[in-house]
Simulated scan of single mutants.
Amino acid sequence: MTVRPGSTIGILGGGQLGRMLAIAAANLGYRTHIYAPGLSGPASEVAARWTRGDYDDAAAIAAWVSQVDVVTYEFENVDVAPLKGLDGVRPSLRALEVAQDRVAEKAFAETVGGRPAPYCPVDSLTDLTQALEMVGMPAILKTRRFGYDGKGQARVRDAAQAGDAWAAIGEQPAVLEKMVAFEAEFSIILARGLDGRIVRYDAATNRHKDGILDLSTVPPSGIVAEQAEEAGALAERIAGALGYVGVLACEFFASKDGPVFNEMAPRVHNSGHWTIEGAVTSQFENHIRAVCGLPLGSTALVGTGAEMRNLIGREMEEWPTILADPTAHLHLYGKTGVKPGRKMGHVTRIF
């Protein structure tokens, strides 16, 4: 069903992704109504309405849903249970459930031909000791749920570090992954419409710093360019198998043996922020188009290439210098608390 302009899109989550979705929605004539636990947030400044409520409050969520025409989300670390039985949630709750659990996510990718790094579920220190023997070292221990930007992770270089690693992640259900040798990290971002049509953006080569995305560049070159089609085909199979509607991001390691699946995000993605100025249709507009049942827009580059750099922590204080650069497009998210590791904005340059 097509959601007509003038309708209201409910967005679960009030961060910077919600902010950019709300701006894209407004440009297409839609209103947005945010649901999030805080009193305010980056999205509240640009949305028509804001409802404060906990993510596990089923009654409050149901009341909010009754006031919107379609529901989407900018944040996947939410309880799925209160959303069960609600109509018009796009992407599907199945996609949310798979992406929330790192073991389920890797297993699902394998069912459609994906190749993650060797991994093993871990539920205790004894499990971890056994998993290290099976998977090998060095390895990385990650919580199964609610980890992002390097949080909830611990590296294990030898068996003597097992106890410290288990304690570092809070002794939570986890997955142990073998650290694979790779030449680059990259992401595939696509949009899938209600009719099943898929459009795909250029693969972005990504550089991380302290576990947080620092720089994304397009178009790809070298080994990433060689492996982008295989990775893109896998991302499309994942989207198809989930009956996906909206923007989907899949992250990969480019290795000598081909693309290694890392993880998926059932939403718009940090490595796609370059698309606001760098593509004919941004990932945010294409997500709104998809969840509203509209035709998808072109993902073609508007120039020969683009780069996007995150402004993390006090890097946002560079804004006067950035604004003085005629090639730069500055986006600040309106966050008031500057903390180390916190994404405060980004800057894009088009070539």
Rank of each mutant, 00 (worst) to 15 (best):
V347P: 02
I322Q: 10
T126N: 12
K106S: 04
K151Q: 00
G313S: 04
P326T: 09
A306S: 04
A181G: 10
A36P: 00
K209Q: 15
A204G: 06
L323V: 14
G297L: 03
E277M: 00
C250P: 13
E110W: 07
A117N: 04
V199N: 02
F186V: 07
Q153Y: 15
G272P: 05
L128S: 02
D54E: 15
L311V: 01
G222Q: 11
I312C: 07
A59Y: 10
V103Q: 00
E171F: 01
P91K: 05
K256Q: 15
G313E: 08
R90M: 09
A160I: 13
D158Y: 11
W319N: 01
I223D: 01
A36R: 09
G334N: 00
E285K: 06
E133P: 10
G313M: 06
T299H: 04
T304S: 11
Y244D: 02
A154E: 01
V260H: 02
Q67N: 13
C250F: 04
P116I: 06
G240Q: 13
I169R: 10
P118V: 06
Q100V: 05
G297T: 09
L17S: 08
R19Q: 08
T2S: 09
T32I: 04
V347Y: 01
F253I: 10
G150V: 06
M264P: 02
S44D: 00
H287V: 02
G211R: 11
D127H: 08
G193T: 10
L190Y: 04
N27L: 13
T275A: 06
T129D: 08
I223T: 13
Y333V: 05
P37Q: 08
G41D: 01
D87V: 05
Q161E: 14
N262V: 14
I276Y: 02
R52N: 14
A203V: 03
L17D: 09
G13C: 01
P42R: 11
A168V: 00
N310P: 02
R207F: 09
G13I: 04
L93Y: 10
N310Q: 01
T321I: 15
V180Q: 03
G113I: 03
P266R: 00
G313K: 07
H331I: 11
R144I: 13
A204H: 05
L21R: 03
Q153R: 15
V347A: 01
E97F: 07
R115T: 13
T327N: 14
C250H: 03
A131P: 00
D54M: 12
A81M: 04
N262W: 03
D202V: 13
P118I: 04
V180C: 00
R192A: 03
Y148C: 07
G170M: 11
P5A: 11
L248C: 06
K178G: 07
T348M: 09
T126C: 12
G334L: 11
K339S: 08
V3F: 02
L213D: 00
M137D: 09
F75V: 12
V199W: 03
G163A: 15
D87Q: 07
S221L: 12
S282H: 05
A154N: 09
D158Q: 12
E236R: 15
